[in-house]
């Protein structure tokens, strides 16, 4: 299935998505990766507010290249999501509903997704230039000292994403290779 969706996404919209579906996502999303996640945990530990409203947010794990003159952003493909596994369950329990990245997630993350009706969308790893074209504007909102790891608010349009893990725990990283191997056994 293919969906055209705009943030913020309701839990109803998210519940329809199944691993393997394509989503063309538009609207506001936030960037955060390793160092920003670590600082967000420190904020929570101190009882301070996070740099953006986490409830119903979509967070893109990306550290873009600097924007050349005339562009909103440089190359902007996803980074490996697994490095955020230690932080994600806490954020999901606080209401974050969409994670965007690439690669496998831990069982703890998948459990937290199912518990909260969240989804994990995969952007095309390595396709930094194409993803850049989907970003209409980028605004640095926090932790400039982190450089490429600073938190940015992005306005994206028709960002092509694959539902990697859905809100029921369906997982393309398991079902995709299994289906391919099964088809090979079929004598192709």
């Amino acid at each position: 299935m293919e969906y055209r969706l705009r943030t913020p996404l309701s839990r109803e919209e998210l519940s329809e998505l199944r691993a393997g579906d394509m989503v063309y996502l538009s609207g506001e999303i936030y960037t955060a990766r390793d160092a920003a996640h670590k600082r967000m945990m420190e904020c929570l530990d101190r009882g301070e507010p996070l740099p953006f409203e986490i409830r119903d947010s979509a967070v893109y794990y990306v550290g873009p290249t600097p924007e050349p003159p005339g562009r909103a952003i440089g190359s902007a493909g996803p980074t490996t999501s697994g490095r955020m596994d230690a932080y994600s369950p806490r954020l999901l329990d606080l209401g974050q509903s969409v994670m965007i990245g690439k690669g496998m997630r831990s069982k703890d993350v998948v459990d937290a997704m199912v518990r909260n009706g969240a989804v994990y969308l995969a952007a095309m790893g390595g396709a930094g230039a194409l993803m850049s074209a989907c970003v209409k504007s980028a605004e640095l909102i926090c932790w400039e000292d982190l450089g490429c790891e600073a938190v940015r608010r992005l306005e994206v349009e028709d960002m092509p994403l694959t539902v990697a893990i859905d809100s029921l725990g369906g997982n393309i990283y398991e079902s995709g290779p299994a289906a391919y191997l099964q088809s090979m056994k079929g004598g192709n």
Partner: peptide
């Protein structure tokens, strides 16, 4: 495998797009 062929198509287009847009192929 069709899904794989489609992904490779996107990655090949990205290599061309990097040239056209004068951007790094990957952000890392």
């Amino acid at each position: 495998w069709p899904v794989a062929e489609a992904s490779l198509g996107v990655l090949c287009r990205n290599i061309e797009a990097a040239g056209e847009m004068d951007l790094p192929v990957c952000q890392d």
